[in-house]
Design a binder for these strands. Structure first.
Lengths: 195, 195
DNA sequence: GTCTATAAAGCGATAGAC
DNA sequence: GTCTATCGCTTTATAGAC
């Protein structure tokens, strides 16, 4: 971290990683200070609301990133099946093939859930709805698409939990591969011979 | 909570619930004291090792309960498909149809993971292996069974995360139903996953 | 076996110098 | 914009009365 003229935007990725690794309660200001290289004074200069504001900003940044990289393409890409494949590949990259966990999931299970309930709810709902929209464009009826999308989001989160619990990051990739097979098979073969 | 002559065994269910609701770090001794009706002195009388010992005992009790109610039947019941159906019904009951979350999953994602790594690992591995054993007895080959079991455990955990995140407990039941359909269909076809 | 009182450390947050 | 010092509170854990 730069020792001077840091900006909120520069801090967010570091903050995100600290919250991911230690949870909301576990990420103490002392630890955040170490990881950012900033003292408490500087941190409160950028985030007058303290830790709660830091976490809220991190969540907003994550939301924006996912919306841009995954949710909008899922909703809008003319080639729905390609968008689904891309989403799964991006998911694998984002979670570093199972070596990273989902901050939103961590917050959802932790004590700070109520404080960030809207953001957490919004993130999961947006992922499910965007994927369902892609599945509908790929030919599924609405009810089937929502069910499959719900399954897929749960599958991703569950594999992150299991990979962490079993200390087996590769489990995440195996799960994603099976998920891709299942999702694309459900769309049927009317895809013009792609893949 | 009885005000006198309490025993460790009486305390464990209450402790489990507090850890589930607030996580390891969030479950302060003050809160535990409130919920058990015991002062700190009494708590340290029963658990000289403090909070860490409380959580370890709770995890051991959970392990034993799952082994008895789910894992052993999965491994030993002559009717493997019935054992799988029972396991899923028991899972729904245990997690109160999505209103309860999994303490082991919470710990796996939280900061206290390393401290309880063996127990957490053991719980997930035992569930996966017991289900895989049932699937093998139901006719699947070993590799297919392990993959399906891995998927199923992740599915359950992921649905708990999603149900909590979306504040929609019913999501858990929907996921379990789809999981049951998928698992039994895999056994039902007499090719046994050998195609 | 249960309690209150208290120690020692860490927490989030603030004040004010530079 | 960054720092150090410090406040007030909560934490885990212990000591000792009953």
């Amino acid at each position: 971290m730069a020792r001077t003229a840091a900006s909120r935007a520069d801090l967010l990725p570091v903050l995100a990683e600290v919250f991911r690794e230690h949870g909301y309660e576990g990420a103490s200001l002392a630890l955040i200070g170490q990881r950012t290289g900033l003292g408490k004074g500087s941190l409160y200069h950028f985030f007058p609301g303290g830790k709660a504001e830091m976490a809220a900003c991190v969540l907003a940044a994550i939301d924006a990133w996912f919306e841009d990289a995954m949710f909008r393409p899922l909703r809008e890409d003319p080639d729905a099946k390609a968008a689904i494949r891309t989403m799964l590949a991006t998911t694998d990259t984002y979670f570093r093939s199972g070596n990273r966990i989902c901050l939103v999931g961590v917050l959802a299970l932790g004590e700070a859930r109520d404080r960030f309930a809207e953001r957490i709810d919004g993130y999961f709902a947006a992922w499910r709805d965007a994927l369902a929209a892609a599945l509908v464009r790929a030919g599924l009826n609405s009810a089937e698409a929502v069910g499959r999308a719900e399954d897929a989001v749960a599958m991703i989160q569950g594999n992150l939990v299991a990979a962490r619990a079993l200390r087996d990051p590769a489990l995440f990739g195996r799960g994603l591969t099976r998920l891709e097979t299942r999702l694309l098979a459900a769309c049927g073969s009317s895809d013009g011979g792609r893949r």
